[in-house]
Design a protein around this nucleic acid. Structure first.
Lengths: 216, 216
DNA sequence: CTAATATTGTAACGATGGGTATGAAAATGC
DNA sequence: GCATTTTCATACCCATCGTTACAATATTAG
């Protein structure tokens, strides 16, 4: 947290915390998208002026890429932690989806996922954004796959789809929760979708899936 | 197709077909998103000049809303037709996903779904766009639900989730195919996701889902 | 304290954004 | 043919866009 490292950098020090500013920038892009957010939006969101933003992070595009990366790393870390600490695949999925819905439905109207709500329009003509979007999807797939593989190895209740395939379904549900949240869907509707997905993936062979849905 | 109706409208007739122009406008928005597409992009995509566009369709926002509506109606009509004509739920889902992937992966890089790739960034601060996005999601849910309900009534192979819930999963897979296509995923990867989803939803109780996946 | 270095605030740059005024052109009604 | 009505083409309007000079300020090295 302290910028006085060995030697110390010469010249006037920055008057802001870069991580915090990046978070505020992400918030602004989250609301307006990349093209829909102007530099002035960013300056008023961060309290910084233009030269400070450019000096610390580069131009608007570089700034956006950095927020995409930061969001992915933070999101994957949180998701992995939730899944790892959950006693079963079922509760792990439930907890991940619950956390996602809380984020996607937060603030004014539904915000959805930062990456999948703002990156797609740019991804078609911007290879760097496309790579970030792909990396986020791949990361989510791998995150779910690891937990599903563990569940199958432990003999937990689980679909007999290969872990890689079931994981992609789990990610697909996140994609849909994001789009639906952005469309204004209620938290109740989002939770219902999530629970249906859990009942398909963390499926209990003996009992029917419909039974498992009742104790939600 | 002929504009000479009873009485005929006075004044100089339009030199373009409105449906065709709307299609070209949609193409432009599909590539660049709403904020990322300028009026000049639209004029060069349609061959019309600005006053003609404004006179026939209104401003940029109205134009975008109309393309969203047109896309939804065309997409739902095609999807319903495919599902209705399919002999089983399984083949119906496969055909719908195949058609979707062909559209989503078309042109240069993957374009994804027009609505879910371009509407989300605007939906947060634009109620009209949000309504269009929600209507598209609701339409897809209803489309799948009708076919799944019919399959269950006919005693077809099918998950025992309620049709409304299974339908939302089916729509979720479309959402994910769109995001992944936009991220540059291969057609092969998209087809694999679709097939996994079909194996979960149009599930054959006797055989395992893993078996059904092999003949893809 | 002095010199060197980095950040800050103000202001401006050229380019492009969405939207429109203004006539010329092309059709119909009498 | 003549008046009327609608569309088409050129050009323009002002606002905002992303980006950057420039000079003042604040800090460290010596």
């Amino acid at each position: 947290m302290d910028q006085k490292e060995s030697g110390g950098r010469r010249g006037r020090p920055r008057s802001f915390d870069e991580q915090e500013v990046l978070q505020q920038v992400q918030e602004a892009f989250w609301k307006g998208g990349f093209e829909g957010t102007s530099i002035e939006d960013l300056t008023s969101a961060t309290g910084l002026n233009r030269p400070s933003l450019y000096g610390a992070f580069g131009d608007k595009h570089a700034l956006y890429i950095q927020t995409l990366r930061q969001y992915r790393e933070a999101t994957l870390a949180r998701g992995r932690k939730i899944l790892d600490e959950a006693p079963t695949l079922r509760t792990g999925l439930e907890d991940v989806y619950r956390a996602a819905i809380r984020i996607y439905s937060g603030h004014e109207e539904g915000r959805g996922c930062f990456v999948s709500s703002t990156a797609p329009p740019e991804a078609l003509h911007d290879a760097a954004v496309r790579r970030e979007l792909a990396a986020t999807n791949d990361g989510l797939d791998a995150m779910f796959e690891a937990r599903i593989a563990r569940a199958q190895a432990d003999g937990e209740a689980c679909t007999d789809l290969p872990p890689s395939e079931a994981a992609r379904i789990a990610t697909a549900v996140l994609h849909s929760l994001s789009v639906r949240a952005r469309a204004g869907a209620s938290r109740r509707a989002l939770h219902a979708l999530a629970q249906s997905a859990v009942n398909l993936i963390a499926w209990t062979p003996g009992e029917g899936a419909a039974d498992a849905a009742e104790d939600a």
